[in-house]
Write a protein that binds this DNA or RNA. Structure first.
Lengths: 256, 256
DNA sequence: TATTTCTGTCCGGTATTACCGGACAAGCTC
DNA sequence: GAGCTTGTCCGGTAATACCGGACAGAAATA
């Protein structure tokens, strides 16, 4: 069980999460949802408002745009994003009608740095779609690609800590099968997800390795119907691997 | 002086802000920057890590991608963004080589919901550039457009609370002049910023009003040289106003 | 319109806990 | 390998986060 040295911060986090889930919410609704006194919820909301994390609009609270600022700052300071953003967009342009993600690892979970995909109307806005949170590594292609390049003991530790919770019926929940698949991924140089994260969605991902360390992975996702029987036999897997290599080169050749 | 009912949350906020400014930072650096004991900084960083706000990479801490998720959630739940996003991109496409922003008001500051502008390489990524934080309303075009449609007492309150801090030499710092300009903005239907936020950058903004209430503003910015002598005489101001009207219509006609 | 029942906000006491000094180990740089 | 860092951990205590209760105002009821 993870512990929280500063309990108050954990509560504020839960409140933010609640407001995020419910959209604009009142004090009592938040208090009820988290089963804390109304006054406590109010204390936290007031501080969160003072620092700009939430906004008070005549009684109801919503998330502030400060998170957009922080999110942008977070990824702009990430060398994988800086070195991979352009190539990810190139890959996106090359693989029509699919989604492209640039993923790193954060505390044993997937951290999505870039998600291109949503085409709005006619023109490509290129604006990201969803930035999912709390994605376990074993549930998707980029996560597995990352996992495949970790030491055995790290994998063991992660599995024993968090287990292998399923997302769909196809999610790998058996450790034996996971380890076998990681072996395959190392051999092939890419990972495949056939409806393991989202039913009906297939993905191909290639790991990004630099200086003997996995820095993340780049992935292409799309409706399963849009893929060849085996993504490896089509050129797609190789295309994704090429993108990964380009980013690896950027990482290595970039000064600092 | 604003007060913080839960001091611990305020400290965590300051730590996040510090990490945001400095990029990947160690415990001692954070502690020194905020003048708190190393152990206290560590306590907070550990909790922030547990909730996913920061990531620990072998001793140094960086911001987590969770902020991207929260940022996206924040604006997706905002009716101005939902109803204005497409029109903002259309406006962006119509006004080449400029920046477009969709702005709301948050606690007397500007909240940037959408910032289109950065063209990467040849293809339009449309991906947002900067999401600035802590922008006072009087320092820029969309802010002034919003301010112009607030009650006199609200304006008075905001000015007396925060004053009129300058950003550049052109920023309005005199209350008389501000009030006069707000009058002009109401008459014209648009606001102009000539190097008041950023030296050498000119902007035109139109307020977005629905149900007797200012919901925000939409703005076009660009290098001052790219603008006609007076933005009003060119068609630009009218173009921006049209975009604002379209968004107003979306806001009013959208169910709920 | 009067009444009831919500809401969000505020206050002050107390027991919890956040803060802090100090100590440890591991990774640097001379 | 010595001397410096660094990040991490522990436990006591004084500060404070939490909570019950009370208030005013807005809806919703009648």
């Amino acid at each position: 069980m993870t512990t929280y040295p500063v309990a108050a911060v954990k509560l504020s986090h839960d409140i933010i999460e609640t407001v995020a889930e419910r959209g604009p919410t009142g004090v009592t609704a938040v208090a009820d949802a988290l089963d804390v006194p109304k006054s406590t919820a109010h204390d936290h909301l007031r501080t969160l408002e003072a620092v700009g994390y939430v906004v008070n609009e005549s009684g109801t609270y919503r998330l502030g745009t400060k998170f957009l600022h922080l999110g942008e700052t977070a990824r702009s300071s990430h060398e994988l994003f800086v070195n991979g953003r352009e190539e990810a967009h190139t890959l996106f342009d090359d693989t029509d009608e699919k989604y492209v993600q640039l993923v790193t690892e954060e505390n044993g979970r997937c951290g999505v740095l870039l998600a291109a995909g949503w085409r709005q109307g006619g023109h490509t806005t290129g604006t990201p779609g969803a930035y999912p949170s709390d994605l376990h590594l074993h549930t998707n292609a980029p996560g597995k690609a990352i996992l495949a390049h970790k030491d055995a003991e790290t994998v063991e530790r992660l599995v024993s800590e968090t287990g292998l919770p399923p997302r769909t019926a196809n999610t790998i929940t058996d450790e034996e099968r996971l380890l076998a698949e990681l072996e395959t991924i190392r051999d092939d140089g890419y990972a495949v997800d056939e409806g393991e994260l989202i039913a009906g969605m297939t993905g191909v991902a290639a790991p990004i390795v630099a200086d003997e360390r996995v820095r993340g992975a780049i992935a292409v996702y799309g409706p399963s119907g849009a893929f060849e029987a085996t993504p490896g036999s089509s050129g797609l897997a190789e295309t994704v691997r090429q993108s990964a290599r380009t980013i690896e080169a950027n990482l290595i050749f970039t000064p600092e």
